[in-house]
Amino acid sequence: MEELALHLLDLMENSLAAGACRLELKIREDIAANLMAIELVDDGRGMEEGEIKAALDPFFTTRTSRRVGLGLSLFRATARQCGGDLTLSSRPGAGTRVAVIMELNHVDRPPLGDMGATIAAALARELPLELYYRHERDGKVFEFSSTRLKEILGDIPFNLAPVLTWVRDFVNGGLQKLYGGEDRL
């Protein structure tokens, strides 16, 4: 995958397939420490130890366990290539946490990409989803909360095109400010 945002969409799809209704995505870019840290926490059904191992191994992931595919192992390979790693922690009934670290300025690190489109795609569903996204870059913070969006929209569902295009533009606009308006996408 060419963008971190696509890997993240893939992770969020795993969470949704595992029955999650609350997702928390935190990204931190620390320029001085040359670190990019990503954390995704869900409240899905969670995994047993054996399942965690299998989830990370591309050759042991079978069709019968549909909720994880090649995605996690792909993302881990990318993280390792960039001087970091991907770790999974989970317990049955206690959700799953995926943590990724990478060298921020590593030449192989994929660009962040279109996070707005990723968040909009995750919210485009029939069942309600609580999604919180926080992005910190050198002390500057952008936050998106679907709970706040729901408060404003009331009865209007998220999966209408005007709403989702607004979400996409709001997220990308907010992130652009973190990057000081420079061309990032």
Partner: peptide, 22 residues
């Protein structure tokens, strides 16, 4: 929007649908 779809460009397809419908 499975891994297969995402890798093949599903997110861009969704963006185009959203643009056009909006």
């Amino acid at each position: 929007m499975g891994t297969c779809g995402i890798a093949a460009g599903a997110r861009e397809v969704m963006s185009a649908v959203l643009d056009e419908v909006a």
